[in-house]
Design a protein around this nucleic acid. Structure first.
Length: 711
RNA sequence: GGCCCUGUAGCUCAGUGGAUAGAGCGACAGCCUCCGGAGCUGUAGGUCGUAGGUUCGAUCCCUACCAGGGUCACCA
């Protein structure tokens, strides 16, 4: 008989999402739920668990429902293992005082699992492992079919805020980590079935923008009109379609100059204060200059991010938070709930402060630290933390006030980015509904954990439901420069820097790797490779491919490290296309593409509706083939785990491992598809190649990386 | 000083309450009569920071200590 290639077996579909209710942020309300408990949660695991739990209750009169499952280290040990007999032996001893051999316990449990759908063998191994062997052929048939089913959709709209770069200078590699991390989390969440709104918060009224304005006014002595006339090809960079304006580069240098300017004469800091004041007033030439500079740089940033495939839905501006008095609403609520208190005496006299939850009010005369968090300064202005509380209350729909919105730009694919406005006349009534999400995730570097903690305390004081509990500061470590990289950028290093092996980037000093510089270097390197390998392609195709490779290398480089690992930026490593890199994974896809092209040229049908009846017997003998396929099929679980943990590195690591296994498969002389004499075996190799390619492309898509047809 | 993070191969990093702790880079030795060498195979390289504790079992959990980093603004 032929094995028809059917849809996914129902038991798989039924179980695919069961674990969402166990330990993820979608339900669990503790921030520690962000820690994932296991990466590979197999599709039939839950069914087996239930059966085991029932058997345990039946045979030993014990209620044991939470026990570990694991994937054995070697294929011959089976496909899924339960070390539950060890735990049971302990429990039984405690309950009855009698010692029981884990192997005996496992044997009894094994009986209960015999005959389960999809499981062909149950064995006891080692000191008492319960090892399950799946029906391989069944899996292959399911895998071969492209699953067109829509993903389930969970809960409400999630709001992910990322990028949020100060609009006063060019974005650097550190900003890229934020944006790429955030963008990838968005992609993973969407692939995991969530609805996501992407926000990019624009601090256009802060010190950083003010400093550049000081630079234009007091160092360069330029008027608004003169600044507007600054050409787009600043700093000897010719504007291109991908990067139409290098104004942000010019500001990068100017910002560093302003730092010096203040150094030379501290009294010049008065210029900053005056500028800040003018900006907040919302009128006048200085305000207009600041608005122009911030807006023009914001366009530069969006162009830079678009090169990496990063897009946004809406960009709330700090100036609008101020001018619409959104803070006032939050302020009233905070006072009403007693979340903040007015200090009438002491160091913080005249301020509204928030106390950390665990500390009762105590005079901290002897301690220079641990002051309460100031929300409103004694001069009546709001701190960043206060503004952020207001912003987050708006994100969760807790303030009965909304921004006005106007169109900012339209991406080439038609998607539109909106920006807030405080001018009601500018409000475009056709805007989508923004804010009022079911939870938010803020991609902000780990250095801001302390103020973020107070933001959460403030929001919690006003909103008690699970939405706040599920929301989180999505923290990540910084990108530092290796001493070698810092030297390449012309930085003098202290002995300490050398010893520590890392140098912090500094916008104020102008020390850092600019995002566009890196992209351009990567593209140039990739282009020379592509041109030498594929001289037959026309220039446009070569450039498109080179771009895909460059972005693959860059995104993967910033995603392969887990969030709380500091990335030491090294040019050689970041510019590499070999080893554990994005291009390595892209190359595996390209090889698979090449095989399918050759199959077509040879007139071999690679889309068969049926496969040979000898497939089960072939598969039973070939552990390597099964192992590769089994690994490829874990993607759904990896995506879900990454979504639960908000950790893109899980997907990056898995994709690399799959590519690695595919390359080993590809290089094995036994697996030469075009020359395989046994048609049944060839069909199997074709199926495996197809599944691996599909899964790799899907994983790369989640990482925001495109796979070229050839490279 | 308080709180948080980190310590795994020469370097950069994964990883797990369980079966032989992994990868990339670097080093060394191989592989193009073979679907693409951005590749593959092999070798060398580890007291998983130290010391206790819990456990049948700890690199993983707990405690202390050591080392490094971050943070504790009327900055954002």
């Amino acid at each position: 008989m032929d094995y028809a290639i059917k849809g996914r077996a129902s038991f798989i579909k039924a179980q695919a999402n069961c674990y969402h209710h166990e330990f993820d942020w979608r339900v669990n309300d503790s921030p520690s739920a962000l820690d994932t408990e296991t990466i590979f949660i197999m599709v039939i695991q839950q069914a087996v668990r239930e059966k085991l739990a029932a058997a345990i209750k039946d045979l030993f009169a014990l209620d044991l429902t939470a026990f570990a499952a694991e994937i054995p280290p070697r294929t011959e040990l089976g496909d899924l293992a339960f070390p539950v007999a060890f735990e049971l032996a302990k429990r039984l001893k405690a309950a009855t005082g009698q010692k029981q051999n884990p192997r005996d316990i496992a044997a009894k449990l094994a009986e209960a699992l015999r005959g389960m759908a999809g499981i062909v063998r149950v064995e006891i191994a080692g000191a008492g492992y319960l090892n399950l062997y799946f029906d391989r052929a069944n899996y292959v048939l399911e895998a071969a079919r492209e699953d067109e089913d829509a993903h389930p959709v969970y809960g409400g709209k999630l709001i992910v805020e990322h990028t949020s770069v100060n609009p006063n200078k060019a974005a650097h590699i550190g900003h890229l980590r934020n944006a790429i991390l955030g963008d990838t989390v968005v992609r993973i969440l969407r692939q995991a079935g969530e609805t996501v709104e992407v926000q990019n918060y624009i601090d256009n009224t802060g010190v950083q923008v003010a400093d550049v304005v000081v630079g234009f006014k007091h160092i360069e002595k330029l008027t608004l009109d003169e600044v507007k006339r600054i050409p787009k090809n600043a700093n000897n960079h010719a504007a291109t379609e991908a990067k139409p304006d290098y104004f942000d580069y010019l500001c990068w240098d100017l910002y560093a100059k302003v730092g010096q300017f203040y150094e030379e004469d501290k009294s010049r800091l008065a210029m900053r204060a005056a500028t800040l004041h003018d900006i907040e007033s919302g009128t006048g030439e200085t305000y207009e200059l600041a608005d122009y500079v911030a807006t023009r740089i914001l366009h530069c940033h969006l162009d830079t991010m678009l090169r990496l495939g990063i897009k946004y839905d809406v960009m709330p501006r700090e100036s609008d938070v101020l001018h619409l008095h959104i803070w006032d609403k939050a302020f009233a609520l905070l006072k009403e709930r007693g979340a903040i208190a007015f200090e009438s005496e002491g160091r913080l006299a005249g301020c509204w402060v928030m106390r950390s939850a665990d500390e009762p009010a105590k005079d901290e005369a002897e301690s220079e630290h641990e002051a309460d968090k100031v929300i409103v300064r004694s001069n009546g202005t709001v701190t960043y933390t206060g503004k952020d509380i207001a912003y987050h209350l708006w994100k969760l729909g807790q303030l009965d006030i909304d921004f006005g919105y106007k169109k900012f730009t339209t991406y080439p694919d038609g998607h539109m980015v909106w920006i807030t406005t405080a001018n009601r006349a500018e409000n475009d009534a056709t805007h989508p509904a923004f804010g009022n999400g079911a939870a938010y995730f803020n991609v902000i570097d780990i250095g801001q954990s302390y103020p973020q903690r107070y933001v959460k305390i403030g929001v919690t004081a006003i909103l008690h439901d699970g939405r706040v509990e599920r929301s989180a500061h999505l923290a990540y470590e910084k990108v530092a420069l290796t001493p070698a990289a810092a030297k390449q950028l012309g930085q003098q290093l202290s002995e300490e820097d050398e010893k520590r092996g890392a140098v912090s980037m500094s916008g104020r000093k102008g020390l850092g790797v600019k995002a566009d510089d890196l992209i351009e270097q990567l593209e140039a390197n990739a282009l020379s490779e592509v041109a030498s390998r594929h001289p037959e392609l026309d220039e446009t195709e070569q450039k498109v491919t080179a771009h895909q490779i460059a972005i693959g290398a860059l995104r993967y480089f910033l995603l392969k490290y887990s969030r709380n690992s500091i990335i030491s930026f090294d040019f050689k490593e970041a510019l590499s296309f070999d080893g554990e890199t994005g291009p390595y994974i892209q190359y595996a896809v390209v090889r698979a593409n090449s095989i399918f092209r050759k199959l077509e040229e040879a007139g071999i049908d690679s889309q068969k509706e049926t496969v040979d009846e000898r497939l089960p017997e072939i598969l039973a003998k070939e552990d390597e083939l099964w192992g590769l396929l089994y690994f490829a099929l874990r993607m759904e679980d990896v995506i879900q785990s990454a979504a639960n943990a908000l950790e893109p590195a899980f997907v990056a690591k898995w994709a690399f491992q799959l590519a690695q296994q595919f390359n080993a498969f590809y290089n094995n002389d036994r697996n030469r598809i075009l020359e395989e004499p046994d048609i049944a075996r060839r069909d199997l190799l074709v199926i495996i190649t197809g599944v691996v390619r599909r899964q790799l492309i899907s994983a790369l898509t989640a990482l925001g990386i495109e796979a070229p047809e050839r490279m």
